[in-house]
């Protein structure tokens, strides 16, 4: 198990900083058995099963990671409380989408994340598909380089991870990949326009 411990501030800072520190912070949260049990219990108490609980726990981590990196988490509530509120709303939304029953506990959480309507969820899934289609036009190496760059990995780390000889080589590769992605969008104005409207 991870020996690292994170305070609220340290966790947020690590996620924002990206690279290996983000990785360690997310792993620390992932390994929190109490938090996992709490999310699982909430889901089970609201007609979900253990698998749903695990799924929501994972989805919650994805949302938390992005909200922190995009400065949507203002740090006014403890990270774990905020994470739980994300999971609670994710499960509520999924539940509504499946139109099973309404949940008993719709109370607002501190710094509650944006609530999705079923239409919103559908719209988001469509958007993901379009984004994935664009990603698939890039090679695997380009996807990895751009991902690492966006997560603030250093050029040295990118070079080491991809077996490149130097930072300069990684930098050139990143430039080529990013340019290729933008050129693809430029050459497909329909897709670019669609994404601009959605994003």
């Amino acid at each position: 198990m991870s020996a690292l411990q994170f305070s609220n501030d340290a966790f947020v800072e690590a996620v924002k900083k990206g690279g290996r520190e983000r990785e360690a912070a997310i792993r620390w949260l992932y390994l929190d058995q109490d938090l996992r049990a709490k999310v699982g219990a909430f889901v089970r108490n609201n007609q979900g099963n253990q698998e749903d609980g695990t799924d929501i726990f994972h989805e919650g981590i994805l949302v938390l990671d992005r909200n922190i990196r995009e400065n949507r988490f203002r740090g006014e509530a403890p990270v774990k409380g905020y994470f739980f509120s994300i999971c609670r709303f994710l499960w509520m939304n999924r539940f509504r989408k499946q139109a099973k029953v309404s949940l008993m506990e719709p109370g607002a959480a501190p710094e509650q994340p944006d609530e999705d309507t079923p239409e919103g969820v559908f719209h988001r899934e469509e958007l993901k598909e379009v984004l994935r289609n664009v990603l698939n036009t890039l090679g695997e190496q380009c996807r990895k380089i751009l991902e690492m760059w966006k997560l603030s990995y250093s050029m040295a780390e990118i070079a080491a991870s991809l077996g490149m000889d130097s930072d300069a080589q990684a930098r050139k590769a990143k430039y080529r990949c990013h340019l290729g992605l933008m050129q693809h969008l430029d050459n497909n104005p329909g897709i670019a326009q669609l994404l601009k409207q959605w994003l």
Binding site: I26, Y30, H58, I61, L62, D65, R66, K128, L131, R132, V134, L135, R143, L146, E147, W149, K150, L151, H178, L181, M182, L185, D186, A192, L195, K196, L199
Partner: peptide
């Protein structure tokens, strides 16, 4: 604006990778 869209495309890659890592 294309540059900003490209950043969103990368975000999708980040999300997919993290999802796979969690699995």
């Amino acid at each position: 604006s294309l540059y900003q869209v490209s950043l969103h495309v990368m975000e999708q890659q980040i999300e997919d990778t993290l999802r796979a890592t969690l699995k």
